[in-house]
Design a protein around this nucleic acid. Sequence first.
DNA 1: AAGTGGTCTAGACCACGGC
DNA 2: CCGTGGTCTAGACCACTTC
Lengths: 240, 240
Amino acid sequence: MSQSPHNGTPAYRRIQKAILERIDAGQLKPGDAVGSERELARLHGVSLMTARHALVVLEQDGRVERRRGAGTFVAPPKIHFNKLTSFSEQMASRGLVGYSKVLSASMVSDQAEISARLALPSDGRLWKIERLRLGADEPFALETVYLSAQDFPGLARSRLERGSLFSLLEGEYGMTLAHADEEIDATTADAKAAHLLAVAPGAALLRIRQLIFSGGGKATLYVLGLYRSDRHTLHIRRFR
Amino acid sequence: MSQSPHNGTPAYRRIQKAILERIDAGQLKPGDAVGSERELARLHGVSLMTARHALVVLEQDGRVERRRGAGTFVAPPKIHFNKLTSFSEQMASRGLVGYSKVLSASMVSDQAEISARLALPSDGRLWKIERLRLGADEPFALETVYLSAQDFPGLARSRLERGSLFSLLEGEYGMTLAHADEEIDATTADAKAAHLLAVAPGAALLRIRQLIFSGGGKATLYVLGLYRSDRHTLHIRRFR
DNA sequence: AAGTGGTCTAGACCACGGC
DNA sequence: CCGTGGTCTAGACCACTTC
């Protein structure tokens, strides 16, 4: 016999799915054993190597912990360090509703440096969208996002007020966001930023310049963010 | 027959070593094929699954790229994002020599919050070491590091002037540093910081609070760093 | 069409953990 | 001791890329 009934999904994926569903349903809690390789192999009618593969990949994804001689256990939920999430997603994960105020949305063609970063001609036309981010009715960030006007036609202002730009791009333009390279430093609030963010001029702001890449490795979005330091701390994890 | 001559190192490690040596020696350059699974299996006298395992792990480490139908190729050297490196290592990687000036080194026992973060009693005795970091004879960072006085006896001031604290801990105390959780925000320079860093009072500084964990998952080091924003930009990469 | 990686089998022995 | 994960074999078919 060759392998299992070929419905398209590999057997090891089905095993992973079964385990993840039990975790998400609360049937398996952190620390619980997910079943040994041999047990899963019997249960799903696959060979040991296949059951093993399912667990190995789950471990790489941080969902289970494998301890030699002991077993495989549900990993404690991880804090999402170094994750690229939209503003809306961040607020939602804290149980808050955030919203944005679009300050301006226009087309520009004089941003040579940003065009270059997005691998566009230096006089390429870009959408420039300025948004004020608010949480608990208090402003805490000023974000200016640039993206190719040609690749995203009809990006109207009205669609940005509510809902996330990420989900708009991922949903309607079939874009998949993959990763972002960020440059982070500190600056002080000028008069305009101070006014919009409701802080004193000269107050410390966290400045983050993001270059966001899509699935194919294409630089898609450039975001300049200024964050009120008293309302925003960036958490990251670094590995040796 | 059981598996290969059991000298202690698994076969797949030996295969990886052989490949990595050819890369480091310059015999294989980025983009070059490292040999197919079948080829490596023949060459090293192992089964296909074993040769495959060697390549799979090398891919996870970012050393090779695997493309179905095409082959396995040497990956282009990666920029080290999100890597925990010591100041000395950072400077060395840029071809610069940095050095530190130890401003103070003392024992304190009134840092309840930091003690808590290091999982020590709230009146635990801590080393507190203040260092000014200089590169190209210009100050650019002020770092205060806290660590358990009990776990690191005899950490004398003289040993910190030259050489890295990391290599001291890893070498002489047998500590392995694993990862750091960092909180990053912005602040402004007070009189003391401004003077030491040679900036105007009120200048924007990047503030990084690091909690550095050792191999066993034990919080070992707490570092408060203030970085001149005009001389320091933090680069990170985030994934979706 | 030939070669590559992706998935899978049905076993095996070893090293380690907990009882 | 027994069960666990870690390594390994000698094959197989499939999906994909390249020519």
